[in-house]
Every structure is written in C-alpha cells, then in structure tokens.
Amino acid sequence: MVSVDPTHAAPPPRGVGETMLDAEHLTMDYGAVRAVDDLSFTVARGEIVGFLGPNGAGKSTAMRILIGYQVPTAGSVRLAGGDIFREGPTVKRRLGYLPENPSLYGEMRVGEYLAWAAGLKGLRGGAREQALAQVRERLGLQGVWQRLTQNLSRGYRQRVGLAQCLVADPPLLILDEPTTGLDPNQISDLRRLLADWREEKAILLSTHILAEALQLCDRVLVLSRGRLVASESPQLLAGRGAERMKTVVLVRGRGRDPLEGLAAGALGAREESREGAEALWRLEGEMDRTGRLALMTHLAARGWDLVEWSAGLTALEQAFRKLTLEEGLETRRDA
C-alpha cells in the first residue's frame, strides 16, 4: 500500500520560513464515506506547495476544512500558529483564499468590490486606499477598475478573485485551481505572479495541471481517495514515474532495421513506408530512462534521422497515475 507517514514526509525545502499552515490528522466523514483520511501536512513561508489528486480525491473538502468553512470529523488546522476554528477571525487576517471559479458580485464595479473586500478584512482609510492601489497595479487591473465584474473576461475575473485574496497582504494563500479556464497567456501571467510571491508567502495551490506543479511547486502533495499518498518535490515524484514510459519514435534512414545491434527488450520496430532505399520506421514500446538514452545514442550513431519522438505520458503524469490508481486498487482490495 502506498502511504505517507506525515512524520516521515519530505521536509520543506531549504530557505523556507515559519510554518503558516499546519494540518494535523484531518479526517472528514460523510456518513459511511470517508472523504479525507488522516491528512497531515505543513506549508511554510517561502514555498509553493501543490495539492494534486484526481476528481473526488478529497481536495475540495480538504481545502474547505483548511479555510474554516467545514469542521472536520477529526484533526486540527493551525493557521499562522492559531487554531482556525477557535481563533478564526484573528488568524484569518493572515489568510487569502481563492475558490475555484470565483463568483464575484456581478453588479459591483471592480474597484468597489475590492474596496468592500478590503473593508471586510479590516482595512480602513489610508491603509485601504494604499492596499487597493497596490493590488490594482500588481494585478494589472487599472483598465477594468471601473468595470462591472459581470462584464469581465474569465481571466480578469480570476485576477479580481486573486486581488481580493491579496488585498490585505496575507502571508498565506490557498488557491483552488487558479488557472482553470484561463488562456495560455493568462496562465503564463498568473504563474509569473505566483513565482514572484514565492519568497514572501506560503502558497498552497490545488491544480489538475501536472506541468504547472512541476514548474511552480517546491513540493507536491498527492491525494488519493482522501489519503495523502505522496509528499515530495515534483522532480522527485517525476523520478518515480520515469522508470517505464510508453515511447513512440519515428525515424527515417537507409538501414535494414533501426534496432539492429541494440538490446531493445520490449521495443518493437515496424516499417511504415518506403521511398527507394529510404524507409520510415515506427519504434514503439515501454522503456525506462536508461533505455531511452541508449536508444537515442544508438539511433544517432547509426545515422537514423529522428522524425518524431513522443512519450504517452510525462514522468510526473505517470507517477500521478501510478500513485492514485494503485492507491485506488489497494483501497478497493481492502474494502
């Protein structure tokens, strides 16, 4: 069974500061269904932690518990040192939360909405004006400041959602699928913003996009059927999946067989088409990292032209599938 003992989970990377979020043994039952099962982890200032898991893994439930919206069946959440349920209003001053597809009040203008949110977060007078000016500039909202939020594009709505999250400059950000529905340019902008905030904040980021986790996160937590099945750097996690990967290679050349002279194992070769002495070959099979390296060296040494190289899944995707599917199988077997 794949499981992670929280006491032996990978420690936060070096350079991180104080612990801003500390979830301990969180369990959430809905009747007979256990949505979150003994979940423990920490997020410290200076790191971006990815929260991964397939649909129904318990991510949203866990996030709702973390912000104090839902009381867990067991376990505790400490936010900036204070218990979220006992000291809620005090500790929530240090929290910024962005739900998935944030729903804004459509009849309010952007500036008005953010001023309202800042007021609710305790900012008054000059401090509020200063905070508003900062988020307006930081999130590039100058052009839409007077626009009704219902008339904003998806990307700008997301930015306004982030702005309400940031307006009181909280040291902890909990972001649920922040890039969902954004176009590639908007995703790139948002990732740049998150990277900028890395040094000063603790960020917990729920995402379906594994490449995003690989690019942004210092650490990823993989949740499967409510249980934490991995807590490590995305690079290390990708290493787990890199052992065997379905690989498809198209090569062109004049030789008899591209795999001649190579201990190819499970790799198969098929001639796709031929023009005179030159043929297009398709090589296909499951290979580990060493095998792929050996294949590339072999093909280059024999003068084969590489036409296409594709892997069915990236290493991180494979690791994710492996962890979440294996865990699912184990759970079904246990049941």
Partner: peptide, 8 residues
C-alpha cells in the same frame, strides 16, 4: 466560502 475565509 470566500466570506467565511474573511476575518468575520
């Protein structure tokens, strides 16, 4: 959810 995450 958003309102509950505010210090209210």
């Amino acid at each position: 959810e958003m309102l509950v995450s505010y210090p209210l």
